[in-house]
Computed example of a mutant assay.
Amino acid sequence: MNWTTFLADTMGRIGTLSKQAPGMFDGFNTMSQAAKRNGALDEKTKELIALGIAVSTRCDSCIGFHVQSLVRLGTTRQELCEALEMIGYMGGGPAIAYGAKALEAFDEFSAA
């Protein structure tokens, strides 16, 4: 999979939906900003948690978006792999398979 193209296509579909449901997206964006603000946990830690949920729920789009954020936040490949170990431990085989997708996305976004 080309993650960059996949996320661009996803954003196009989300843009179409947002025109039909702007109130929902306004609320979601407000919630996103509040959840990501630095507090007792920094944004990187919160994005690693979000990645764990994305892998566990098997959401390719979510994996892509959160990995992209983790790259932006300076996450190392080792940090990501250690998080994926914990995610795989808690989620078993399906989490390992989707964790491999997350690593693939990380490598693509890191190379860009």
Rank of each mutant, 00 (worst) to 15 (best):
T57W: 04
F25Y: 07
I96Q: 13
A35T: 11
T10R: 00
I53P: 08
F25C: 01
P22D: 10
F106E: 03
E104V: 02
G52M: 08
S56K: 12
T10V: 05
A112N: 14
A83R: 00
S56E: 09
F65V: 09
G92I: 08
N38E: 14
S110Y: 07
R13A: 15
D107C: 06
T5V: 08
A112D: 12
A83Y: 03
E104M: 03
N38L: 08
P94R: 00
F25N: 01
H66F: 06
E108A: 11
Y89K: 13
Q20W: 00
T30M: 10
L73H: 09
Y89I: 15
S32K: 12
G92W: 07
T45A: 07
G99P: 07
T10D: 01
Q20Y: 05
N38F: 02
R58G: 06
M1L: 13
G93R: 10
I63G: 02
G27Y: 05
K36T: 13
T5C: 06
R72E: 07
M1R: 11
R58A: 10
L80T: 04
C59F: 05
P22I: 10
W3D: 00
L84I: 01
I49F: 08
I87G: 01
F109T: 02
Y89P: 15
T75V: 00
T16L: 10
D9A: 12
M24K: 15
L73A: 12
E79G: 09
T4W: 07
F28G: 11
M11I: 06
D42Y: 13
M24A: 14
R13V: 14
V67R: 01
G99N: 09
R58H: 11
L80K: 05
T45L: 02
S69P: 05
Q20C: 10
K46G: 12
E47R: 14
I96Y: 05
I49V: 12
K44I: 06
K46W: 09
T10Q: 04
A34E: 14
C81V: 15
G74Y: 05
A100S: 13
M31T: 12
W3I: 01
R37P: 06
Q33C: 06
V71P: 05
I96W: 07
F28A: 15
L84Q: 00
G93F: 13
A111T: 09
C62M: 12
Y98P: 05
T4M: 06
I87Y: 03
N2W: 00
R13G: 08
R72N: 11
P94D: 03
L84C: 00
G99V: 06
S61N: 14
S18F: 02
L7M: 13
L73G: 08
G15R: 14
G12Q: 04
G74Q: 06
E82L: 14
A100V: 11
Q20L: 14
L73F: 11
I87E: 03
K101L: 08
F6H: 12
E85T: 13
F6S: 15
P94E: 02
S69V: 06
M31P: 07
F6G: 03
I14V: 15
E47A: 15
F106K: 01
G88S: 11
A102V: 02
Y89D: 15
A34W: 13
T75A: 10
G92M: 05
S56F: 11
A35H: 09
R13T: 13
